[in-house]
Structure formats: structure tokens, C-alpha cells
Amino acid sequence: GLPPGWRKIHDAAGTYYWHVPSGSTQWQRPTW
């Protein structure tokens, strides 16, 4: 699974990851 606080988001551009507490997003899968 993903580290705490991360969500996987799907949209028209593809899949990305959202860090809910900080509001940051990234294309790379977050690592622990």
C-alpha cells in the first residue's frame, strides 16, 4: 500500500499521487 496520508488519483492525464496533509502531488509512486 501507500504511505500514510497518500491517495492515488485517476484523471484524464493518467494516475498520480496526492499527499493529503501537505497538498502536494507527484507522478512517482511515493515510497516509505
Rank of each mutant, 00 (worst) to 15 (best):
G1D: 13
G1Q: 13
G1S: 12
G1H: 13
G1K: 12
G1E: 13
G1F: 11
G1Y: 11
G1L: 14
G1P: 13
G1V: 11
L2M: 06
L2V: 04
L2T: 02
L2I: 05
L2F: 03
L2Y: 04
L2H: 01
L2P: 06
L2W: 04
L2N: 01
L2K: 10
L2R: 03
P3M: 03
P3L: 03
P3T: 01
P3W: 02
P3V: 01
P3A: 04
P3E: 02
P3H: 01
P3I: 01
P3R: 02
P3K: 02
P4V: 04
P4Q: 05
P4N: 05
G5H: 04
G5P: 05
G5S: 02
G5K: 00
G5Q: 02
G5E: 05
G5R: 00
W6R: 00
W6E: 00
W6S: 01
W6A: 02
W6I: 00
W6F: 02
W6L: 00
W6K: 00
W6M: 01
W6T: 01
R7N: 06
R7W: 07
R7Y: 11
R7P: 02
R7S: 10
R7E: 10
R7I: 15
R7G: 02
K8H: 08
K8L: 12
K8D: 05
K8Q: 14
K8E: 15
K8T: 11
K8W: 10
I9G: 04
I9W: 06
I9Y: 06
I9N: 01
I9H: 06
I9L: 07
I9Q: 05
I9A: 06
H10L: 09
H10W: 08
H10E: 14
H10T: 15
H10S: 14
H10K: 12
H10V: 14
H10R: 11
H10G: 08
H10A: 12
D11T: 15
D11Q: 06
D11A: 12
D11Y: 06
A12T: 10
A12E: 13
A12P: 10
A12M: 09
A12G: 12
A12Q: 09
A12N: 10
A12H: 07
A12K: 12
A12I: 10
A12L: 10
A12Y: 08
A13W: 14
A13R: 14
A13I: 11
A13P: 03
A13K: 14
A13T: 14
A13Q: 12
G14E: 07
G14F: 06
G14M: 04
G14D: 06
G14A: 05
G14K: 08
G14S: 05
T15N: 09
T15K: 05
T15R: 04
T15I: 13
T15L: 08
T15S: 10
T15W: 10
T15Y: 09
T15M: 08
T15G: 08
Y16K: 06
Y16F: 09
Y16A: 04
Y16S: 03
Y16E: 06
Y16L: 09
Y16W: 11
Y16G: 07
Y17L: 01
Y17Q: 00
Y17E: 01
Y17W: 06
Y17S: 00
Y17V: 01
Y17T: 00
Y17F: 07
Y17P: 03
Y17R: 00
W18S: 08
W18Y: 15
W18N: 07
W18M: 14
W18G: 03
W18E: 15
W18R: 07
W18D: 05
W18I: 15
W18Q: 12
W18T: 11
H19K: 02
H19D: 05
H19V: 03
H19W: 04
H19I: 04
H19E: 02
H19P: 01
H19T: 01
H19N: 02
V20D: 07
V20M: 10
V20E: 15
V20H: 07
V20F: 09
V20Q: 11
V20R: 04
V20S: 08
V20Y: 12
V20N: 04
V20K: 06
P21L: 09
P21A: 10
P21N: 07
P21H: 04
P21M: 06
P21Y: 08
P21G: 06
P21S: 08
P21V: 11
P21D: 11
S22P: 03
S22M: 02
S22N: 02
S22D: 05
S22F: 02
S22V: 02
S22R: 01
S22I: 03
G23V: 01
G23L: 03
G23N: 09
G23P: 00
G23Q: 05
G23K: 05
G23W: 04
G23M: 05
G23F: 03
S24I: 15
S24K: 15
S24Y: 12
S24D: 13
S24T: 15
S24V: 15
S24W: 14
S24Q: 15
S24M: 15
S24H: 15
S24E: 14
T25L: 13
T25W: 13
T25Q: 08
T25N: 06
T25V: 14
T25R: 13
T25D: 04
T25I: 15
T25P: 04
T25Y: 11
T25M: 14
T25E: 08
Q26Y: 04
Q26P: 01
Q26R: 06
Q26V: 04
Q26H: 05
Q26M: 07
Q26I: 05
Q26K: 05
Q26E: 06
Q26S: 10
W27M: 15
W27Y: 12
W27E: 12
W27F: 13
W27V: 15
W27K: 15
W27P: 12
W27L: 15
W27I: 15
W27G: 09
W27D: 12
Q28S: 08
Q28L: 09
Q28M: 08
Q28Y: 08
Q28R: 08
Q28G: 09
Q28I: 09
Q28N: 09
Q28V: 10
R29T: 13
R29V: 13
R29S: 11
R29H: 11
R29K: 14
R29Y: 13
R29L: 12
R29D: 09
R29P: 15
R29Q: 12
P30L: 02
P30W: 00
P30I: 00
P30H: 02
P30Q: 00
P30F: 01
T31G: 11
T31Q: 11
T31L: 12
T31I: 12
T31V: 11
T31W: 06
W32D: 10
W32K: 08
W32T: 10
W32N: 10
W32Y: 10
W32L: 10
W32P: 08
W32H: 09
